[in-house]
Simulated scan of single mutants.
Amino acid sequence: MTNALSRFLTPVACTCKDFTHPWTDSCANASAGVLLAAIPYSLRIYTMVYALSLLMRHRIPRLGDLKRNLHGIIQSTAFLVSNGYTFILFNCLLRRLIGHYVCATVAFVPSFISSYASILIERPARRPLLALYMANLATESIWNMAEVRGYVRSIPQGQTLIFGVSISALLYLYRLGLHKTTCKDSLFNVLRFFVDKREEGPVVAKAGCEGAATATATATEASVSAASTSSSANTQRSRSPLDFRSINVLVQIYSRFLDAVKSRHPSCPHRDNCWHYALMGGLRPFVGGIGLQLALRLIMNFKKIMQFKLDVRKTIFNKDTLNLGIFLGWFSFLYKGVSCTLRHSFGRDDPRFAIPAGLLASTAFTKYPDVTVALYVMWKALQ
């Protein structure tokens, strides 16, 4: 421990010119140069971010929306620019105050002060998002370092497992309705787009789900013939909860799956039949994902487009462009399809259905296995 501490405080024979700004001898000129170079880059990034946020609202922006977004672009740009140039500023300042570098002042201390000072410039609503984004990068970096040193070992499709468990937890909270009270977060607005607003909790037991067949049979018994009564009783038995102790349970599940395809259970929150609900629910995210991927590719290659140097077939029209759309569409389709099947099978709606539905739907993540997305959802679930 003493040896490690002594190494941590051992002076480093290096100047800030050699380490931080080899292009100039002046620390002030280096900080000012990074400041000027970071402005257009940061402005371009946040203009794209806020423009996409406007598009995600699916309505024509009003004058007030444009003013708020312009203010947000300027404020977020100031945050990112200050985070860049103040690192050099505090790095050089600490070396001059101490007289030399130590292990802590080479990067950790100046970057901590720089990040803390710059995030105070950003809007308070965006600070948790930035903190979680950096937690993603830190988690991934630490894992990669540990894996290189042989301390841990990655498993195939591990990011899909992380995503599946995390998104299932978030969907369970969504179906409980806690996203409206104790678990408010902007991520649930994104989930609402993919799993539908009608799946939103809290789940309310509807008249006509369990016990509806009994009430119908009782009312019919007083007004119709014995044949109608028998038919109602058969309907009641077909909608009763599944008996998993019976070997016929698989036949019952298959029969109710066919019912889900052809009809709508009273506990389902949608009006169309379940097959139409799941299919159309998956089609919209599929088209939206492809459109978003195309838009990002066009924006990232804007310079090449203006110079007529873009290979359209290679850059845009390839199978990778479909991956995001396939993931989003397949995820939505599976989640809604499994949820409807469970409602038909058990004869009721239940927030716990979000867990198996979310786990099965997360298999679509194999088409877009992004580690950053998986870690972001994980940290959101933990938050």
Rank of each mutant, 00 (worst) to 15 (best):
T2M: 07
P11S: 06
A13W: 03
T15M: 07
C16N: 05
D18W: 07
C27V: 12
A28V: 15
A28D: 15
N29Q: 13
N29C: 08
G33M: 09
L36H: 08
A38D: 04
P40G: 06
L43Y: 13
L43P: 00
R44F: 15
Y46V: 07
Y50A: 02
S53C: 14
R59I: 14
I60H: 09
P61R: 09
R62D: 04
L63W: 14
D65W: 05
K67W: 08
L70V: 05
H71Y: 06
I73W: 01
Q75M: 14
S76C: 14
F79D: 00
F87P: 00
I88P: 00
N91C: 07
L94W: 05
R95I: 09
L97N: 02
G99Y: 09
V106K: 09
V109N: 02
P110I: 15
S111L: 09
S111P: 00
F112T: 08
S115T: 10
A117W: 03
A117Q: 08
I119T: 04
I121F: 15
I121C: 05
R123S: 15
P124C: 10
A125C: 11
L132T: 10
N136C: 15
S141A: 13
M145R: 14
V148I: 11
R153P: 02
P156N: 08
Q159V: 15
Q159W: 09
L161Y: 10
F163T: 00
F163S: 00
I167R: 00
A169Q: 13
Y172V: 02
L173H: 04
G177Q: 02
H179V: 12
T181I: 10
D185M: 13
F188W: 02
R192F: 11
F194C: 04
V195M: 11
V195N: 01
R198C: 11
P202R: 04
A205Q: 11
A207Y: 12
A207D: 10
G211S: 06
A213P: 01
T216R: 13
A222H: 12
A222T: 13
S223T: 12
S223C: 10
S223D: 10
S231K: 05
S232W: 13
S240H: 02
P241G: 05
P241C: 04
N248A: 09
N248R: 11
L250N: 11
Q252H: 11
S255G: 09
R256G: 00
L258Y: 06
D259L: 14
A260Y: 03
K262V: 10
P266I: 07
P269R: 02
P269I: 12
R271E: 15
L279S: 08
M280N: 10
L292P: 00
L292I: 14
Q293A: 13
L294H: 03
L294M: 12
N301C: 14
I305K: 06
K309G: 01
V312C: 12
R313K: 14
R313T: 14
I316N: 03
F317N: 03
D320M: 03
N323I: 03
L324R: 09
G325Q: 07
I326A: 09
I326E: 01
F327E: 01
S339M: 14
T341E: 02
T341L: 13
T341G: 07
R348N: 10
P351M: 11
F353V: 12
A357L: 07
G358W: 04
A361K: 01
T366D: 03
Y368R: 03
Y368P: 01
V373D: 01
V373P: 00
W379H: 14
A381P: 01
A381C: 07
